[in-house]
Design a protein around this nucleic acid. Structure first.
Lengths: 131, 131
DNA sequence: TTTCTGGATCGATATTTATCTATGTTGACG
DNA sequence: CGTCAACATAGATAAATATCGATCCAGAAA
């Protein structure tokens, strides 16, 4: 939870809830399977671009590695930029479909969209006989 | 090889050569393992950013999926932008360490740096008990 | 209601970047 | 040699973006 002065009394972390997993857009085949179409590239590039900024990558990693699969903004904001900048980057990660957010009382919790790691991992899978 | 008017008579494709595999920088642990440090984020974000443009992603996919593991620029340049723009993007992919290039006679061949897919794939590995 | 706090939004700015045209460079060929 | 073709580089420009300070909004507590 959030290590701060005034503690919330709303249930801080209903961990591991159903998660409403929408089962993802498969989006694209592995990058190595065949040349991407323009549409596929547009779609996949949006995800890579979202992780293509150091601050966003740290925020994403903080959420992804946080106990319970979610993190309060106040727990991950120590990345060397101002609070509006953190907010701006979290919004971009949300818009790219990598994170979801939920407000609970005073705090806002972010979590990794369940399908994302699998979808992006699939893009980078290595073909069976890679030389 | 290159489907063009004037054919080269230098050996066009010494496929699957030793590849001088430098065995890669492991760079970073999975994104889900722990919050990335600033340095780790800087390093990993550089790779994601390189794939974060649709044109570059198509070029990368074209090389990665090309028979023999390498592709001549002339075979992958049909992505809707000018020739200098293609060249510019290929340079960025090289600078990011994702591609290598080699000139053979008239043509320049690009190939995927062998370690890259594994390194980036590792970043996106899903933790053992992901809920 | 008033006050405080966590976080989002607004508006401005400096930097990055994707793209182009024009030109340079390199190798093949006659 | 000169010419042609494949790429790369240079320079310019318009658009995207990372960042900030100021402000706004929502929930909690006094």
């Amino acid at each position: 939870m959030c290590q701060h002065r005034r503690m919330s009394n709303t249930k801080a972390l209903p961990l591991l809830e159903p998660a409403t997993s929408e089962e993802a857009t498969p989006c694209c085949p592995p990058l190595t399977e065949r040349p991407f179409t323009a549409d596929e590239a547009e779609s996949a590039a949006r995800m890579f671009k979202a992780l293509g900024d150091p601050v966003r990558l740290r925020l994403f990693s903080s959420v992804a590695s946080h106990e319970g699969g979610e993190a309060c903004v106040c727990d991950i904001s120590d990345v060397g930029v101002s609070q509006p900048t953190v907010s701006h980057h979290l919004k971009k990660l949300k818009d790219a479909g990598l994170l979801t957010s939920e407000r609970r009382g005073t705090w806002v919790y972010y979590r990794v969209e369940p399908s994302v790691l699998a979808t992006m991992g699939r893009l980078l899978t290595i073909p069976p006989s890679s030389a």
